[in-house]
Design a binder for these strands. Structure first.
Lengths: 140, 140
DNA sequence: CTTCATGCAAAAAATTTGCATTTTG
DNA sequence: CAAAATGCAAATTTTTTGCATGAAG
């Protein structure tokens, strides 16, 4: 529930359910994103090459792309920063500290926003709160 | 108030207030974004070169960047699509139709989300609702 | 007349593609 | 085995930079 440390069986299932082949590269990608919560392509590449030095950047791009299409990963685009990815099983609202760049997950109830919404059918709501985190504020 | 057709004096003021020089290129950029609501770099370049064929893409990049830093423009990053820009005077929540890609502005009260928020001080709240718009739904 | 913006070309960064080889189901 | 994934190198796309020239305050 904290998004940390899913076992491999769980990750294999995410792939199998979508008829995607289970490869060590894919499991590694999912395991790292699961462990760290949100990673961008470069962070992922840096971490993954530590355990798996021969993975290709192209493979990471291809897999991120196919997993986003299959709703296994969720793309988080952040103003002024690189796109990050999280497991869609723990899709959250996010608080982004514009000072230290830390991202915190928020459990926000979106219903108050959707009340009376009539522009169409809703698939997904993305909420990002930008500001200065408590730690950064006390430092100043 | 509808973000359409600001006069040049208004746009000049946005720049002057930030001590940015008023140039025809900058006014053109702001006028087009004001008129269309949200544009990405390529859309902007395509539109701007119609009236102003010799503007350089580098100039657009430099200006977008400096205007975002100065809070004149607001960056809207959208999953699976190119980053768009709007005048920050009409920053909105957005409904994005994943079918026809249309972006609709929403006037949403964010207070219900911020109630009890205690992770830090809030500068800006970004809300994006993804789904299928009414027009696309009836077509199917 | 000083500071800043523009435009060009070149460089750098980010992403995508084709294809031979290997792995998975 | 057939279908799909990998890894490499090359191609493409996107964004940034340096610098000479021109415009704004």
């Amino acid at each position: 529930m904290e998004g940390i440390g899913h076992d491999y069986e769980f990750l294999e299932n995410m792939l199998a359910k979508k008829n995607l082949k289970v490869t060590p590269q894919r499991l590694q990608i999912l395991a790292l994103i699961g462990q760290f919560g949100h990673l961008d392509i470069d962070e992922l590449y840096a971490k993954i090459t530590k355990d798996y030095p021969y993975i290709s950047l192209a493979t990471i791009y291809k897999n991120i792309s196919i997993m986003v299409e299959n709703d296994i990963l969720n793309e988080i685009k952040i103003a002024q920063e690189k796109t990050k990815y999280e497991l869609s099983t723990n899709a959250h609202a996010h608080f982004i500290c514009t000072n230290c760049k830390k991202i915190e997950d928020l459990n926000i109830d979106v219903n108050c926003i959707l009340e009376g919404f009539d522009k169409g059918s809703v698939a997904y709501v993305n909420i990002q709160i930008y500001g200065t985190c408590n730690a950064c504020q006390t430092k100043k």
